[in-house]
Design a protein around this nucleic acid. Structure first.
Length: 596
RNA sequence: GGUCCGGUAGCUCAGUUGGAUAGAGCAACAGCCUUCUAAGCUGUGGGUCAAAGGUUCGAAUCCUUUCCGGAUCACCA
């Protein structure tokens, strides 16, 4: 049993015994003792004064005295104002550590037959341009939350929804057909997603030019936007695509395949993969048929021009269009189709959409629409809404070329990791292959930690001019601590020293207890990260643990310790800390290198 | 304009079921490597927690108002 719970119930017993009163359990407040005071846990007694009818100091002393006398784990107490600081015995901490030391997946809950089934959608790229920093945040949050939920004992299915159809894809296709002269990624070694993205940009440039020409010729701007040659071509192409024109479909498939090949590389770099891919081109028609069925059932309304919509005025919102007058579907329509298909596929108990907070309204409406369409699971959808990645000048805009490209950023990080490593003279005597691998692990550790340590609901400012740090509160710092531990344990093994399971030590030093207390907190940290769906919880924990270990490492000898019991304990602490750091970082998708 | 989110040290961020003197990192300055990896450790300086009221034993945290920033209120995705 967790000691906080035990203290909680013991205090309730104490109040009964000393003051002859039944305490409201909610009023017994236990928190960790702040480090400037002596003790492990602190009871805030102000709310208990109603029972004691005594001063805060006296009440705290009464309770402290009772706990010390009656609870074996409590070794001492002190009172500061209305705060009762409780110290637990070294034996308690040693017993806890010995127990957790023998546990394999300490802090993790394993998945069982009746585990909650959670589908999580993230990434959700468009196939007309390469991934950028915004997508990186989405991917990292999605992947990390997936791992965290698994660690909390859920059965997690990671899915992706590729937006592979629509006018934006046609724009790239038009530009490629008009100016590409058959260019392929193989031909000149450009990544497929980049190549297609280039044509998307080219379309926009040419389109603007055409509008300007028409406007110069006297046409109003609004009309020019409609009449521009390439826009007409793109619209025409979309119509042909929807009618199944084979030539268009072939080009579409070819260009999308280029993009997927490019995405695959970026996903591989980020260490991400999905259990199932969904494609909008395969789900939007299903959404359309569901909407038509809903119309027939009377769940939805239709305007004289044929537009199908849902009246949301009872929710204080407007009308939501689900099919245009010409019968084509909108974004919401395909999301309906995808959700229904997924429910049929997995019968999930929850589906999480990892999508930016700019779409808060969309997902609010999606749940309502599914409810109106009489799907009983409509309340199982959760929108995991995260903040935007911004530049110092503001939002990233792909058309203005201010986006931070994912591949380029990763490559730059690797360069920085390499030059740092070389400057520090690390990794001498390693093969190029080995150093490359380690540099990549460190680079991605820095990038992933940089993004995940920030509360996901907040916006992030990324300044491309300031490189992401490798020192201090960073991924490499934690990785370094892990590598340091690896090295230490390797040395211990070389000297034939291995910790034995009979962990015994008297007079634990401050550094050892602090570390054990942090280890004790790991399961709670994982649980809370799962409940809040928030990777930053884990990132902050890992940083604290690494920092505490480094402090101990600096203060106390480990392999050189003379007292056998202490030496044994410190090696065991190092082993466990290393494992927990590795577990925690794995929840963030970060690896620990053997050496760095 | 309505709704939602945010504003904490020069910079990037922790800290909110209300608790003690608001914490880290970066940057600056001062120390610590013949000793287990110095991508480390120790110390110094740095704050009107956007502002004002309120609630109470106690507010960065809850309520009200104001200011600033962002998002959204599409037959775009």
């Amino acid at each position: 049993m967790r000691i906080e719970k035990k203290l909680h119930s013991e205090i309730s017993t104490a109040i009964r015994s000393i003051y002859n009163q039944e305490a409201d359990l909610g009023k017994i407040q236990i928190q960790k003792t702040r480090k400037e005071f002596t003790g492990d846990f602190t009871v805030v007694v102000f709310m208990l004064l109603a029972y004691s009818k005594k001063s805060p100091e006296q009440t705290a002393s009464d309770l402290g005295e009772y706990l010390k006398a009656n609870v074996i784990e409590v070794s001492d107490y002190n009172v500061v104002k209305g705060f009762l600081n409780i110290s637990l015995s070294d034996k308690f901490w040693m017993d806890f550590f010995a127990e957790c030391f023998s546990q394999d997946n300490f802090g993790f809950t394993s998945t069982e037959a009746n585990s909650k089934k959670v589908v999580i959608e993230y990434s959700s790229p468009n196939t007309n341009k390469p991934l950028h920093l915004g997508h990186i945040r989405n991917n990292l949050i999605g992947h990390s939350v997936s791992q965290i939920l698994k660690a909390c004992g859920n059965e997690v299915v990671q899915v992706n929804l590729v937006n592979d159809r629509g006018i934006h894809i046609c724009k790239s296709m038009v530009a490629w057909e008009e100016t590409g002269m058959g260019e392929t990624p193989e031909q000149n070694g450009i990544k497929g997603d980049r190549l297609v993205g280039n044509y998307y940009v080219r379309f926009d440039q040419e389109y603007k030019k055409q509008i300007a020409e028409l406007v110069a010729g006297g046409m109003p701007e609004e009309q020019a936007k409609e009449e521009a040659d390439w826009m007409k071509k793109a619209r025409n192409m979309l119509k042909k695509w929807e009618r199944g024109n084979q030539k268009i479909l072939d080009t579409w498939k070819m260009m999308n395949d280029w993009v997927y090949e490019g995405f695959d590389k970026t996903y591989a770099d980020l260490g991400i993969r999905f259990d199932k891919m969904y494609y909008e081109s395969q789900t939007y028609l299903h959404g359309k048929s569901i909407v038509l069925k809903g119309l027939k059932q009377g769940d939805l309304k239709q305007k004289p021009d044929g537009t199908v919509f849902l009246d949301l005025t009872e929710y204080g919102m407007d009308e939501k269009v689900l099919l245009r007058a010409d019968g084509t579907s909108v974004y919401m329509t395909q999301d309906i189709g995808t959700a229904v298909i997924r429910y049929d596929d997995f019968k999930f108990e929850e589906m999480i959409y990892v999508v930016g907070n700019e779409q808060d309204y969309h997902f609010k409406v999606l749940s309502i629409v599914l409810d109106k369409l009489e799907f009983p699971w409509s309340n199982r959808l959760t929108h995991l809404s995260y903040g935007m990645v911004e530049l110092p000048e503001g939002k990233m805009k792909s058309r203005e070329g201010t986006v931070v490209d994912a591949d380029e950023l990763i490559e730059e990080m690797i360069q920085t990791a390499r030059s740092n490593s070389e400057e520090l003279g690390k990794l001498e005597g390693f093969s190029t292959e080995e150093t490359d691998k380690i540099h990549k692990i460190i680079a991605l550790g820095a990038l992933k930690y940089f993004i995940l340590k920030v509360d996901s609901k907040k916006n992030i400012t990324f300044n491309p001019k300031e490189s992401i740090d490798f020192n201090g509160n960073t991924g490499p710092f934690i990785q370094y601590t892990g590598a340091r531990i690896n090295s230490l344990l390797k040395k211990a093994a070389d000297q034939n020293i291995s910790e034995n399971s009979s962990l015994r030590a008297e007079n634990l030093s401050h550094g050892e207890i602090s570390l054990i207390k942090l280890i004790y907190a790991f399961p709670d940290s994982v649980k809370e990260a799962g409940e809040k769906r928030n990777p930053s919880e884990i990132a902050n924990y890992a940083y604290e643990l690494a920092k505490e270990f480094n402090r101990m490492y600096q203060e106390l000898p480990i392999l050189k310790e003379e007292n056998a019991a202490s030496k044994n304990l410190r090696i065991a602490l190092s082993t466990k800390t290393g494992l927990i750091l590795k577990s925690a970082l794995s929840l963030l998708g970060i690896e620990v290198p053997e050496r760095m």
